[in-house]
Amino acid sequence: MTTRPQHPGPRGAQQLTVHPISADEHAAFLAQHPTASFLQNPRWPQVKTDWRGESLGAFDGDRLVAATLVLHRRLPLPSAVPVLGRKSLAYLAEGPVFDAEEVALSALLPAIVDHLKGQGAFLIRMGLPGVTRRWAAQDVRRALAAGEHTVISELEPLQVDDGAVAVRAELEGLGWEPPQESEEFEAGQPQFQARIPLTDEEGGPLDVDAVLARMDQTSRRQTRKSTRSELVITTGGEEDLPAWQALYAETAERDDFTGRPLSYFQRMFRELNAAEDTECTLYFAHHEDALLAAAIYVRQGKFAWYVYGASSSQERKRYAPRALQLRQIEDALAAGCRWYDLGGLSPSLDPEYPLAGLTRFKTTMGADVVQTYGEWDYPVNRLLTRAFTLYMARR
C-alpha cells in the first residue's frame, strides 16, 4: 500500500481575496493544472444553460493562486419575489482548483463563501478535487464475485491519502457538512469513481498492451475480437450528432433511462472543442451500413473521460462498444493522459444490488475504484436549504 498526501494541514495566516476573472484568465490557470476536470472549464456554463456561470479567482496579493467555476441556480421562484427571488444554489463541481502546497483551505474557502454569500447563495455545494483512497480493479471485482463484503470501503486499499482525515476535519471546522456514503448515486458527481490508470506507479506512461492486461479475461478477449470484427471506426463532426442522437435514444428506450436532448450534445461538442487544450470527440463503429455503437469522449489536459455511450441491439457479437473503448484508450494514451475515467459507480459489493452490473463492467475493464472527497455543503440559510432538499427529493 502506498500513501500520497494531497492536502497538507493549515498553515500560517494567509490573506486571500476572491473576485471574478475572465474566461481567458481562468483557462490559462487551468492549463497549469493538467488534471483539472472539464466541469471546471469556463465554457461549461454555455452547455449547462439552466445555470448561470461565474469564474472566480483567489489572489495572494496580485498572484492568482486558485480558480473555480461556480454554477448558480436560482430557487424555483419568479425573480420578482422579494429577497427569495435572487437566492440561488452555488455549485462548484470538482472545484476549486489550486496547489495544496501554496494555498490553505482555511484561507481559500472562507473567502469563496463570503463572495458567494454576496451573490445571494443560500447553499454552497463543493466537490473538492482529490482522491482519498483507491482500490485495485482486480480486488474489487473479486470481492464483488465472492459476495463476502458489504461495501468497497471494507477492502484493503491500494492507495491512501494520509492527509485526508485532516482535510475532512478542517472542512467541518470551517462549517462544511460532509457527504454521506450511499449505495445510490448521489446528486451531482458520485463519490466513488472508476478510473483506468494510464501510467505506472512511478508516473511512466503505459502502452496499450499494459492497459489491456488490466482487464479480466473476458473483457480482454471481447476487446481483441472487436478488432477482427470488420468494424469501421470513425470520428464525426457536429453535423453527425443527429446520427448519435438516434442511437442514443434507442439505447435510452432499451435500457430505460431518460436521455439528454440533441441540443445538449450540440452545445457540449461546440463549446468544449472551442476551448484550449480540450477536445470532445464523437466516435462511431459501423459494420457495412449499420451503425452499431457510438461514444462521446472528452479530454482536457492530461485527463480523459468516457462520457456517453450508445449501442444497437444488432450484431452484438461484433462487440462494437468494446472497439470504441479501445479507440478511446488509444487516443488517451497518445495524448499523454494519466487517467481514463469511466464515471461513477456504487460502493456496494452485494452481487444482487441493482447497480452491481455497472461496477462489474467497469472493474473488468481494468478500472480502479477511487473515492473522492465527495460533495460538501455549506448551508448559508438552513431553512431554505432544508426546503430545497425536500423539493429536490420530491421531483
Results as ranks from 00 to 15, higher is better:
residue 2 T to G: 07
residue 7 H to K: 10
residue 9 G to S: 11
residue 13 A to L: 14
residue 41 N to K: 08
residue 44 W to D: 00
residue 51 W to V: 07
residue 55 S to R: 00
residue 64 L to H: 02
residue 66 A to C: 03
residue 74 R to H: 15
residue 74 R to P: 06
residue 81 V to I: 15
residue 88 S to R: 15
residue 93 A to L: 11
residue 97 V to C: 03
residue 98 F to I: 09
residue 101 E to S: 12
residue 101 E to W: 08
residue 103 V to C: 04
residue 104 A to Q: 12
residue 108 L to M: 05
residue 112 I to G: 05
residue 113 V to G: 05
residue 119 Q to I: 08
residue 123 L to Q: 02
residue 126 M to K: 10
residue 131 V to D: 01
residue 132 T to R: 15
residue 133 R to N: 13
residue 141 R to Y: 08
residue 143 A to S: 04
residue 143 A to F: 03
residue 145 A to G: 10
residue 145 A to K: 14
residue 147 G to Y: 03
residue 151 V to T: 15
residue 153 S to I: 11
residue 155 L to R: 00
residue 161 D to A: 13
residue 164 A to F: 15
residue 166 A to C: 02
residue 189 Q to D: 13
residue 189 Q to S: 14
residue 193 Q to L: 15
residue 194 A to V: 10
residue 195 R to W: 14
residue 195 R to K: 12
residue 197 P to N: 04
residue 199 T to H: 14
residue 204 G to C: 12
residue 211 V to E: 00
residue 222 Q to P: 10
residue 224 R to P: 08
residue 225 K to R: 14
residue 228 R to C: 02
residue 228 R to W: 03
residue 242 P to D: 02
residue 245 Q to M: 12
residue 248 Y to V: 12
residue 256 D to R: 15
residue 264 Y to E: 05
residue 267 R to V: 08
residue 267 R to E: 05
residue 267 R to I: 09
residue 271 E to M: 12
residue 272 L to Y: 07
residue 281 T to C: 06
residue 281 T to N: 02
residue 286 H to T: 09
residue 288 E to S: 14
residue 289 D to T: 15
residue 290 A to F: 11
residue 297 Y to G: 08
residue 304 A to C: 06
residue 309 G to R: 03
residue 312 S to I: 07
residue 316 R to S: 01
residue 320 A to S: 03
residue 324 L to D: 03
residue 326 L to I: 04
residue 326 L to H: 02
residue 330 E to H: 03
residue 330 E to Y: 00
residue 333 L to R: 05
residue 338 R to A: 13
residue 341 D to W: 09
residue 344 G to M: 07
residue 344 G to Y: 03
residue 345 L to T: 07
residue 345 L to N: 02
residue 352 E to G: 15
residue 359 T to S: 07
residue 362 K to H: 01
residue 365 M to A: 09
residue 370 V to W: 04
residue 374 G to V: 09
residue 379 P to E: 06
residue 380 V to K: 04
residue 382 R to N: 05
residue 382 R to W: 09
residue 383 L to I: 14
residue 386 R to F: 11
residue 387 A to Q: 10
residue 392 M to G: 07
residue 393 A to S: 13
